[in-house]
């Protein structure tokens, strides 16, 4: 078997939440198949806790890079764009010829929202001449909120099988097959949006109430008020 080395980039500033549990699962699945995988947190490079220059030695032995990231305002979070810009400026030579894939997840229960983000990842791969293996999108990542997938019952099992199927393709250098995305997509019928919105509003207002914040406070037009910085 051709053993591969995978570098998984966690794009969330929160180092132990949904993007991380996705990355962790992909790492374990890769290791179970006899491959080597490690996870790094983009935020540590952004915050200069780790030196960007040190990435060169980390990247060189890798065969495959995978970005696991949340969606922020319809695309990649700021630190992730910063990181990709810097990679394309400083380490394009090192990245050239390697393979790249992305797994994105968002708050709203609609994986279609991740399309522009995944396209940006594809354009990044092209810009640095990496081979794009494809992307996966999961809608509803906020509800997972860092819970290990093994503890999520049926939902977790489906996500794990989607990652298993995608990984089979990834380590063989094949494009991720659409069936993996099929396993990840659990579309909520639009007719349920209104009851869902009502339920989420009830939950948020209750959370606020328990912290002593009224509905009026929650909806404050803060920047139209006179306040001291």
């Amino acid at each position: 078997m051709n053993r591969k080395r995978l570098l998984l980039l966690n794009g969330s500033p929160r180092k132990a939440k949904t993007s991380y549990v996705f990355a962790r699962t992909i790492k374990h699945l890769a290791e179970k198949k006899g491959h080597k995988a490690e996870i790094i947190h983009i935020i540590e490079y952004f915050d200069e806790e780790k030196h960007f220059d040190a990435l060169k030695d980390i990247i060189l032995p890798q065969d495959i890079l995978g970005l696991i990231t949340p969606l922020y305002v319809d695309t990649l979070p700021y630190p992730v764009i910063w990181f990709l810009e810097k990679l394309s400026c400083d380490l394009a030579g090192e990245l050239k010829g390697k393979e790249f894939f992305a797994v994105a997840q968002c708050g709203f229960p609609d994986a279609d929202l991740l399309h522009p983000l995944l396209e940006s990842c594809r354009y990044f791969a092209k810009a640095v001449e990496m081979r794009w293996l494809g992307g996966l999108g999961y809608g509803g990542g906020a509800l997972i909120d860092g819970t290990p997938l093994e503890k999520l019952g049926r939902k977790g099992k489906k996500i794990i099988s989607a990652f298993t199927s995608a990984l089979d393709d990834i380590v063989e250098g094949k494009n991720i097959s659409p069936s993996a995305q099929g396993l990840l997509t659990a579309k909520i019928p639009k007719i349920l949006y209104r009851p869902l919105a009502a339920f989420l509003n009830y939950r948020k207002k209750r959370e606020a109430y328990l912290q002593g914040v009224s509905d009026a406070d929650l909806t404050r037009k803060t920047y139209l008020e006179n306040y001291k910085l």
Binding site: T75, L76, P77, Y78, I81, E85, P116, S120, Y123, R194
Partner: peptide, 27 residues
């Protein structure tokens, strides 16, 4: 236009403009 999207310089503000919306939901 960066990778078919915004540059990091714009995104640093845009991420923080989520306060333009409420933490509630509507359809």
């Amino acid at each position: 236009v960066r990778f078919g999207g915004y540059s990091s310089q714009l995104k640093k503000v845009l991420d923080k403009l989520m306060i333009l919306v409420l933490p509630l939901y509507t359809v």
